[in-house]
Structure formats: C-alpha cells, structure tokens
Simulated assay, not measured.
Amino acid sequence: MTVNKIRVLHVVQGLGAGGTEKVMQLLACYTAPERFAVAVHSPADGPRAGLLRQAGIQTYVGGDVAAVLERLRPHIIHVHRGGWPEPVLMRPLRLYRQTMHRQGRKAVLVETNVFGRHDDSPGGAALDATFFVSRFCAHRYGQVEGIAVAPPRYQVLYNPVDTDFFAAHALPPEQRDYARPVIGRISRPDPGKWSALALEFLPATVRALPDMRYRIVGGIDEAHRYVAEQGLEDNVEFCAPVLTDGELVTFFDSISLLAHANDTGESFGLVIAEAMACGLPVVTHPAAGLRDNAQLELVEHGITGLVARSAEEYAEAVLHLLRHPDEARRMGMAGREKAQRLFRVQTVVRKLEQIYRELLERCGGVL
C-alpha cells in the first residue's frame, strides 16, 4: 500500500458469483489507482478472488480481519452486507475505527446496504455512511424506520454496470433481431430468486408460439420438474452458470428479451441493469407488500420493458414484444440509454470517490 494514497479496504462475506460480490469487484477495480490504494478482505473464497487479483487488487481470503486492518491501516473500510445486525462481521471494524480515532488518525466506516435493512446494534451506530442501492430501498427504509434518509449519513449509490464493455461487445439494438422467438432468464439456482410466474407463463406462450425457446441460467429443481411435467423440453434449455461480462454478452446476444420473475423482488436488479445495458427489453412483475420492488425502478412499463401482474399478463407481454420487434427495439434502446446514464461504473465510482473524500474531511485527524 502506498502511503500518500487513500487506503480503502472492501469487506465482503464471500467472493462468489452473486451480485453483491460483483458490485464490490467493480467498485474495487475501477477506483482511481493514482489516488486510492484498494484491497479486499473476505472470510470465504470464491471465483471472484482470482478476478480481483488479475486486476491487481490485493485480496485477502480467510484469517482474521483485525490482522488485515492492522497490516493495511485503511482510511476507508467499505463493508458490503444486507444491512441487518452482524456483530461478528462488524465488531472488529468498529473497534478499528475507534482505535484510529483515539490515535488522532482518520478512519471512516461505510456500508453498501444491499437490502435496505436497519442495524440498531453498536455496529450500525459506528457507521459514518450508508449507501442504498436504489431509491426504493432508501424510501422504504425511511418509511419503515422513521429515519430521515438524507446525506451525508444516507445516500443512494446505484450498483455499477460496465456499460462501456457491453456497448463495445454486445450486439447494438440496430442489429438485433427482436422477432427471434428466443427469450432468457438468469439468476442463481436459488428458490428464493424465483417466482411461479417464471414458469406459469410458458404453456400459453408456447401454444401461441410453438417454436419459442426459453434459455434459463440458474434453473432450480422445481423448474426442471415443471418443464418435464408440462412436456416443454423442446422449448426450454437449461444453461451453464455465467461469471464474466463476456459470458453475459454471449448469453444476452442469444435472446430477444429478458424474462425476470422473483417473488421477493429486487433491491436493485443487477441482471436487469446488465440486460438493459445490452439493449434488451425486460418483462418483470411487482412484488407484494413491503418486499423489494426496485425492479420497477429499472423497468419502466412501456419505456424500458413491460410489467405483468399475472401469468396471463406475463405471457401476453412476452408475445407482444416478440410480435412487435420495432417496439421491443425502442424499449431496448431506452434501457441502454438509462443504464449508461445511471449505472455506468465510471460515473458511480467517481461519485463514490468524492463521498470518500468528503467523509474523510469531516472525520478529523490526520491521514
């Protein structure tokens, strides 16, 4: 670590293929190396560790985070978590911050609060800033907790997307065949990431469009059973997991729209944003009650995609887009523009760097 740079340590519970880990990776890799020295710590290993190291990011897996803190002496600790109390994770970070302040040194503790949850523990009280990944999460947090959600303590920082990479490597909307009857879905193979809508729209859609293909990344056992029971094996393809943006481009270039369905909703919806960055319209649905609904923040009905509330509406939305390719192209172009404007990784990271600097200025002490 270079002494005259602002030292940043990202802390995350794992280095797997999920969206939380990918967001952390993008923030770490795109932070300006001439002004910041960035490292990552995780108690659990995963495929992103290798990608981080390939990018030149010091990555520490396992061991005691307190030892990593003592070795690196970061000015910024940026923890990525769900938002609820996690004393085992937060205690050493909180104690390090307290020790540095007692020594007259600058140390700031911030979180990316992935699910917009409230932490009323000592770990939560030690935070200098909370970043919500969507306006929806920030609004719900303030509404439910009765807390004024305002800067500098609370801020919205959208999850980053490498829109430049997608623009350079994915098919542009002008060259896409939006009438090709191939649609896709992508998620982790976790029942919590699914909705019955993701399957129940299929029979009616296939009856109306017998040659339609549905490509699924992250298929769960229930999906395999449903496809077999309904005799849809010729219409559904279960695909291997994807990790890199290059693999995502290959998948997105093979489909005409993204079919999103998740009963728990999305606190942001990284796959939705990435599909938009590739010029794909998205079909999604609202989540009930106070569940995550940021998918509706990304997918504006009739602008960047379509919102359906039942299996029948979902099938109609899919068929409408496939049968009206010019409209699908217009939505794909609008989605790509929105992703570039709001989620471009370079823009998000420059905002984050400015927040880091402002927090350090208010912190007192010396670097």
Results as ranks from 00 to 15, higher is better:
Met212Pro: 02
Ser195Trp: 05
Leu209Gly: 10
Val149Gln: 03
Gly83Ile: 09
Arg91Trp: 08
Ala126Val: 09
Gly82Trp: 00
Gly218Cys: 12
Asn113Ile: 04
Gly124Lys: 02
Ser121Ile: 04
Leu199Pro: 03
Thr112Ile: 06
Gly123His: 02
Asp164Gln: 14
Ser187Ala: 15
Met100Gly: 04
Thr99Ser: 14
Tyr96Arg: 02
Pro151Lys: 08
Arg91Ala: 15
Ala168Glu: 15
Gly116Gln: 11
Ala126Phe: 07
Lys193Glu: 14
Leu89Glu: 15
Asp120Thr: 13
Asp119Pro: 03
Leu209Pro: 08
Thr112Lys: 02
Gln98Asn: 09
His139Arg: 06
Lys106Gln: 15
Glu222Thr: 13
Leu89Ile: 08
Phe201Trp: 15
Ala196Cys: 00
Met212Thr: 13
Ala196Tyr: 00
Leu95Asp: 10
Pro172Gln: 07
Glu111Pro: 07
Val182Leu: 10
Gln143Phe: 09
Arg176Lys: 15
Leu197Trp: 00
Glu86Pro: 04
Leu171Tyr: 04
Gln155Pro: 05
Arg215Ile: 08
Phe136Arg: 10
Gly104Asp: 12
Gly184His: 10
Glu145Arg: 08
His224Leu: 11
Arg97Gly: 03
Val206Cys: 12
Ala196Ile: 00
Pro203Gly: 09
Met90Ile: 05
Gly146Thr: 07
Ala126Asp: 14
Thr130Cys: 10
Thr163Phe: 03
Leu202His: 10
Val161Ala: 10
Thr130His: 03
Ser195Cys: 05
Pro92Met: 07
His139Met: 05
Asp177Gly: 11
Asp164Asn: 12
Val114Glu: 15
Phe132Ala: 08
Arg97Tyr: 01
Gly116Tyr: 08
Ala196Arg: 04
His169Arg: 15
Arg176Asn: 12
Gln103Pro: 01
His224Ile: 04
Arg188Gly: 15
Arg135Ala: 12
Ala170Trp: 02
Ala129Asn: 12
Asp162Glu: 14
Arg207Pro: 01
Lys106Ala: 13
Pro85Lys: 08
Pro92Gly: 08
Met100Asn: 03
Ala196Thr: 00
Arg97Thr: 13
Leu157Trp: 01
Phe166Thr: 08
Gly218Arg: 08
Val206Trp: 10
Arg102Ile: 01
Met212Gly: 00
Pro173Ile: 11
Phe166Glu: 10
Pro160Thr: 11
Glu145Phe: 01
Thr99Leu: 12
Phe115His: 14
Leu157Lys: 03
Arg188Tyr: 01
His224Asn: 01
Pro172His: 02
Val149Tyr: 01
Ala126Lys: 11
Asp119Ser: 08
Pro181Gln: 07
